[in-house]
């Protein structure tokens, strides 16, 4: 899968550019971010298909890629403030699958590494634990919002500990090779590292935004109230009425209004 690495990191960079463009109040910033999410989604799904049609199928890999693809596409829809019924459940399902995949991976590699190096085994737990908690935080937001933030904070703390410890401890011998925990993680699990990078970026954004070091992502595509309503629906603070969320009605009325009055005062 390393052939996708360049693309992954280009997309991450593009995502950062898009985020900053959006923070700088450029309307195309949010579109770039949505495009990146879509691209990630497609990449993951293509890989899932490739993996599916391989002679030697790896169900865990297929599940991981499919879940990642699904998550990315839903995030893409979110970026464009498109929300559909049961989106949270699909999102949660994909998130739960991913957590399962990463816990499985941790469970597989931990005992094996523990035999040779307890430090590295601990780092593996930190790495996978962090990503699992990140996904958990993201997944439970609509259902148990009060738990989502602590989970995200713990996940972020774990990954920081992982990074700091691996940088301080430097290389250790494993399998006769001098390896760096960070490098072991990045080489062994490119995809996971990409996902983790995205989460870390997201957490950094949230954190830095909270302490006012960077501005919030901005879009004037729709009124701010619309974004608030979408957020309310996404975080599970709203129950749909007649199958429709408030923000859907809002957009419907808004679009109708714009269509009718775009030129009312343009003489």
């Amino acid at each position: 899968m390393s052939k996708y690495n360049t693309l992954y990191y280009l997309l991450i960079l593009l995502l950062i550019t898009g985020a900053f463009a959006s923070m700088a109040q450029n309307s195309y910033g949010i579109k770039i971010m949505g495009g990146v999410a879509a691209a990630f989604g497609l990449l993951f799904l293509i890989q899932a298909l490739q993996s599916f049609y391989k002679d030697k199928k790896n169900p865990i890999e297929i599940l991981e890629l499919f879940s990642l693809g699904l998550l990315s596409l839903i995030i893409c829809l979110r970026v464009f403030y498109i929300h559909f019924l049961y989106a949270e459940f699909v999102y949660a399902l994909a998130g739960a699958s991913l957590i399962g995949v990463y816990l499985y991976k941790m469970n597989t590699s931990f005992p094996q590494i523990l035999k040779q190096n307890s430090y590295l085994a601990g780092m593996v737990v930190l790495f996978y634990g962090s990503i699992s908690l990140f996904i958990l935080s993201m997944t439970i937001t609509p259902f148990i919002p009060w738990l989502a933030e602590p989970a995200g904070v713990i996940a972020f703390t774990l990954i920081i500990i992982f990074t700091v410890v691996s940088l301080v401890k430097k290389e250790v011998l494993y399998n006769g090779e001098k390896v760096h925990a960070l490098r072991l993680a990045t080489q062994a699990e490119h995809r996971t590292v990409v996902v983790l990078s995205l989460f870390v970026l997201f957490s950094l954004y949230i954190g830095l935004n909270k302490v006012d070091l960077i501005p919030a992502i901005y879009s004037d595509e729709f009124p701010k109230a619309y974004f608030d309503l979408v957020n309310s629906a996404e975080t599970g603070n709203e129950t749909p009425v007649d199958g429709m969320y408030q923000h859907e009605r809002f957009k419907e009325e808004y679009d109708r209004f714009i269509e009718k009055h775009a030129n009312t005062f343009r003489y």
Binding site: L13, A21, P215
Partner: peptide
């Protein structure tokens, strides 16, 4: 092209960051 894209994105990101900072409410 990749390198160029990275450079452009890095420059744009920096520019947007500065711009965003200037546009912050405070």
């Amino acid at each position: 092209a990749t390198g160029f894209a990275i450079t452009v994105m890095a420059i744009l990101t920096l520019f947007y960051w500065i711009d965003a900072e200037q546009k912050q409410n405070h």
